[in-house]
Design a protein around this nucleic acid. Structure first.
Lengths: 217, 217
DNA sequence: CACGGCGCTTGATCCAGATCAGGGCGACTC
DNA sequence: GAGTCGCCCTGATCTGGATCAAGCGCCGTG
């Protein structure tokens, strides 16, 4: 949540927030069909959300970096519609949703912010909905990650992927082999440097050009 | 919006709503980048939303039937992120959003309802995000339409598609030819009967089985 | 009425990416 | 150190759906 609230507002927010964690790699923050009670802000680490279909196969829905909110899509069905899993050591702020909604009714700024967060998620959900090539998807994924890291004050040109290739592939609806091949192609074309999970942008402009149609049209 | 509000609430809602229309086939309700001011409930007809990418190609984002809300995804960027186009004769209720947000702060029921609508859209947006076969997508599309019609009191087993094949194809990220072929295959397999834009379910259970993984895993 | 044009269908070919198969390598255990 | 297990890479083959290319029926228009 952005700063810029006044004293009593911050006070109120402070009361209904609860620090939780650490969760270890592979631990569940919540599971599909758990009753909805709270939304979470990531303080540290990376979270992935996913669903498993009628038997077995996982579908990765998203990754959440420090500063981002998890669980907003649970408000409507009143149950979490997906699993949330720690990809590394994860620390969270837990916001009880009933309390937050009550606060939102008193303080317009909070309500506004919640509306924005929800509305924003609608947009980003449709990001990977288009029929894009593997290159476009991968470029968009990397650029979006870089931008999100940059927004939190980290380097926008070098970062470490906190998820395995298989999760990236699943998220982008590609085969893991394709992810591997596209990354190599990008490196051969001098767009990035790849060293296992470390990514460095070499030609950010070209990457952005590739990603342009995906993010968002 | 569901009924069940008390008198003063209904009164207040009544004040900020405005009937607009008719829009004729092909007319724009709003365009991408128009400043955001209101959300709309469809009273009659069908609306499609779409974006056009950097040059030309359209991407259909959704279809809206009577009783459904258009424009919720505009809250965050504060501009409409897509075009909204009438597919036939369209009648709307226009809700000024600033007024609605103010009202929501006073009346918790309204706020709740808005949260639900927003959260619900996050879920349905990720519906067609999975990597599903043409059959699964098509079945899911038909079943979802039938359910939405049924929820509004229309027949759940026979309805008329208000959009051309090309729009369905675009929405499902398929080629128009594929839509044609899949519909024919469904008819050959005795799942549905197709007569130009009229659809009749013959084996709804089988269709639902096909759609199951898509809606929503 | 003939003429276009558009929406829809059907068949033939093509291709991006899935799938299958195998190999390398770093981390951990015994 | 040898063995094992994940994770990642790379090559060969296969395939679902896109694309290309006609044809067909329907409606509006001159």
């Amino acid at each position: 949540m952005p700063d810029g609230y006044d004293k009593p507002t911050l006070q109120a927010l402070h009361c209904l927030v609860e620090h939780v964690g650490p969760f270890r790699e592979g631990e569940y923050l919540f599971r599909a069909n758990d009753p909805f009670g709270a939304i979470f802000a990531v303080r540290g680490g990376t979270v992935k959300t996913s669903v498993v279909d009628t038997l077995g196969r996982e579908q990765v829905l998203g990754f959440y970096l420090p500063g981002e909110m998890v669980g907003l899509n649970a408000i409507h069905p009143d149950h979490y519609p997906c699993d949330a899993i720690a990809l590394d050591s994860v620390y969270l702020c837990r916001f009880s949703f009933p309390a937050l909604a009550t606060l939102a009714a008193r303080i317009p700024g909070i309500q506004q912010q919640l509306f924005r967060l929800l509305s924003k998620d609608i947009g980003t959900a449709s990001l990977l909905a288009g029929d894009f090539s593997a290159e476009e998807r991968m470029a968009a994924f990397l650029v979006a990650l870089a931008d999100r890291y940059a927004a939190r004050g980290f380097s926008a040109t070098a970062f470490r992927l906190s998820m395995p290739r298989a999760d990236i592939a699943n998220y982008l609806r590609l085969a893991a082999e394709t992810v591997s091949r596209v990354l190599r192609r990008f490196q051969d074309q001098q767009l990035i440097r790849v060293e296992s999970r470390d990514i460095e942008f070499v030609d950010a402009a070209a990457l952005r050009a590739l990603a342009r149609n995906v993010l968002h049209s």
